[in-house]
Design a protein around this nucleic acid. Structure first.
Length: 598
RNA sequence: GCCCUUGUAGUUCAAUGGAUAGAACGGCUCACUCCUAACGAGCUGAUGUAGGUUCGAUUCCUACCAGGGGCACCA
């Protein structure tokens, strides 16, 4: 348990035994961070909450409680005050603040870790890019939300597995295959036939020959394939036949399928590696797409589902869950996405012995997810409360009129992840003087800073809100940005490097806190921020908090020399050490690796 | 039609039912012989509308206005 948590527990205990409140049922003493430094560091509204029930004036009640607390010894609290309309405010003592600095220095990379989820196993599914398109900003948000959630859960003590689904079969991939055959041949006289490609593979372009990345190449195949199949009936029929042949295991078609997929995978992998993404498990659709039917059958036998006249199977969610019903099995007996989802959910639950399953999926799937969860509960696979759809807002672009505009492949407004990172990288590299200072000391500095800037920009807003992406504004290099946080870290490290010796936690005892007070106050709340991120399943609290720390640190840095040769120097160095540590830990949760110089 | 969801400075984002609604960008000042100015200090400026619940509402409820998403054999 961290210092802040202990202090809050201690306060709660003392408030509870306060004579005015001692008999109350279900008494919960809410102690939270004060909204403004003028109101202390911690605050409780307990007097406001219970004054009515007790029939007393809130201020008087607050004063009585404060008087009671004043009578007990609390080393963490320097001052208690009552403010209208009835808040009790607590001020941290210098001892508490400096002890916390020592804790950070001592616990290092573990400072902030909690045990709320200790012993729990979580599975987080995220990203799941379809291998027919290059990854764009929507995928980026999904990936960053997923990966940051993965770390938030770990920091709260859970054992976490991440997985994704590779939707590598079906009509979309067939369109890629067709688009490749029909539009990527070097000689237009060549027939658009799988056999022709098989016999003369070198007569079809590769991404290298086209001068584009493999993901862009696949996107082109898909877009052209979709366009042609829409316009041309023969092409449409051909593409449908590809799906059928693929299902029958036609070796030629399978070979073409693997060929186009290899390009898609290469592109996806390149982008995901750049983001430092990670999956413990990848479910390839071609391996499981027929699973799930037995669950539907079982549900039919138990009378949970009903068979329609045409043979399709329908859910029964309306009465018990208040959800619209949906088809679980097509009339021809084949599976749908939801059928597969049921099977996969059962497998995940079993294989990972999972307590909680999380799906990071866009908001358009909200109803579908609810239906999957409900059906899984009906089938006894798990309980509703074990399943969570972690949704996220759309990433849009700024429209001409200043409004929100969804990305559209038809209108060519889809922004690719790699393009964004490259653009930010170019922006960073435009700052030549700064780069010259360090480009030989830190390899790939501009790439690292660009990744930091992009990740921070996407993770800073609440994940549920739509995000208007404007590369000039969203990915700041100044102000509220990943680069700013990184810069603050580098500044801190620079001081420590100049000092050149190890900074010890013991150097902190018995000091009087000065201009660094605001910084110390913020540092104490880091574990609390990680808990809040768990409650909301959103890492944006961490991002906001890192800005707060950075700002407080830079403000202090500007007002005071740290290496001043005074007897406070060694203590101030511990504060710098603690700051850099918290920045590093917080950035790690966001998936941003620090650099030591920039 | 039904269900879900969003509306905060000029712009991009914050604010676990609390107190004086915070930042950043932009604009206007100030500041660089000093541990990294990719910095710091100051000024400017906002809760869609109308009710309700509450000691207290950006937050909860209702209606309206304006966006976005979804609604059975697509993925």
């Amino acid at each position: 348990m961290n210092g802040l948590e202990c202090l809050i527990k201690e306060l709660q205990t003392h408030v509870k035994v306060c004579p005015q409140l001692v008999g109350m049922e279900d008494l919960f003493v809410h102690i939270e961070r004060s909204s403004h430094p003028n109101f202390g560091d911690l605050t409780t509204n307990i007097a406001l909450q219970y004054s009515k029930t007790l029939g007393v004036n809130p201020i008087e009640l607050a004063e009585e409680i404060a008087a009671h607390l004043g009578g007990v010894s609390l080393s963490g609290i320097a001052k208690i005050e009552v403010r209208k309309p009835g808040f009790i405010n607590f001020y941290f003592s210098d001892e508490f603040l400096s002890t916390n600095v020592a804790d950070v220095v001592e616990q290092g990379a573990n400072f902030g870790r909690g045990e709320k989820l200790k012993g729990q196993r979580w599975v987080v599914e995220h990203t799941s890019p379809n291998p027919n398109k290059a990854m764009h900003l929507g995928h980026l948000r999904n990936n960053l939300v997923g990966m940051s959630l993965y770390r938030v859960l770990q920091w709260n003590g859970a054992t976490v597995t991440t997985d994704e689904i590779d939707n590598n079969r079906g009509i979309a991939i067939a369109k890629v295959m067709y688009g490749f055959l029909a539009h990527m041949k070097k000689d237009s006289d060549l027939p658009t036939e799988v056999s022709a490609w098989l016999a003369h593979k070198n007569q079809w372009f590769t991404p290298e020959e086209k001068g584009v990345g493999p993901d862009v190449f696949v996107t082109e195949c898909y877009v052209l394939g979709e366009k042609t199949t829409k316009e041309n009936e023969a092409a449409e029929k051909f593409t449908r036949q590809l799906v059928v042949d693929w299902e029958h295991g036609d070796t030629a078609v399978r070979e073409l399928w693997e060929h186009v997929l290899s390009y898609a995978y290469a592109g996806i992998e390149k982008t995901l590696n750049r983001l430092d993404s990670h999956f413990d498990r990848v479910w390839h659709e071609h391996e499981h797409y027929q699973e799930g039917k037995q669950y539907v059958e079982a549900g039919l036998e138990k009378g949970i589902f009903q068979k329609l006249e045409d043979g399709a199977v329908l859910t029964n969610l309306e009465s018990s869950y208040g959800l619209p019903d949906t088809i679980l099995l097509k009339r021809d007996g084949t599976a749908l996405y939801i059928t597969q989802d049921i099977a996969l959910t059962a497998r995940k639950k079993k294989e990972y012995n999972a307590d909680k399953l999380v799906w990071v999926v866009g908001p358009d799937q909200s109803l579908a997810m609810k239906q999957v969860f409900a059906v899984c509960e009906q089938l006894g696979i798990g309980e509703l409360e074990d399943f969570t759809h972690v949704s996220y807002g759309y990433v849009g672009l700024k429209a001409g009129d200043g409004g929100f505009q969804k990305m559209s492949s038809r209108e060519g407004t889809v922004v690719l992840i790699d393009d964004v990172i490259d653009a930010v990288k170019a922006k960073i590299e435009a700052n030549e003087s700064a780069l010259e200072r360090n480009h030989e000391l830190v390899p790939d500095l501009s790439e690292k800073l660009a990744i930091a800037a992009v990740k921070f920009a996407i993770l800073k807003p609440d994940r549920t809100q739509d995000l208007t992406f404007d590369i000039n504004q969203s990915v700041n290099v100044h102000g509220d940005s990943g680069v700013y946080v990184m810069y603050s870290y580098v500044r801190a490290k620079s001081i420590l490097e100049k000092y050149g010796r190890e900074v010890l936690a013991q150097n902190v005892v018995g000091v009087k806190v000065g201009g660094e007070k605001e910084l110390l106050r913020s540092l104490a709340f880091f574990p609390n921020v990680i808990e809040r991120s768990l409650v909301d399943l959103s890492a944006h609290h961490v991002a906001t908090y890192l800005l707060e720390i950075s700002s407080a640190f830079n403000s202090w840095y500007g007002s005071e020399s740290i290496l001043d040769g005074s007897d406070r120097e060694i203590y101030k160095l511990a504060v710098v050490q603690a700051t850099s540590q918290v920045l590093k830990n917080g950035l790690a949760i966001l998936g941003i690796q620090t650099v030591e110089r920039m």
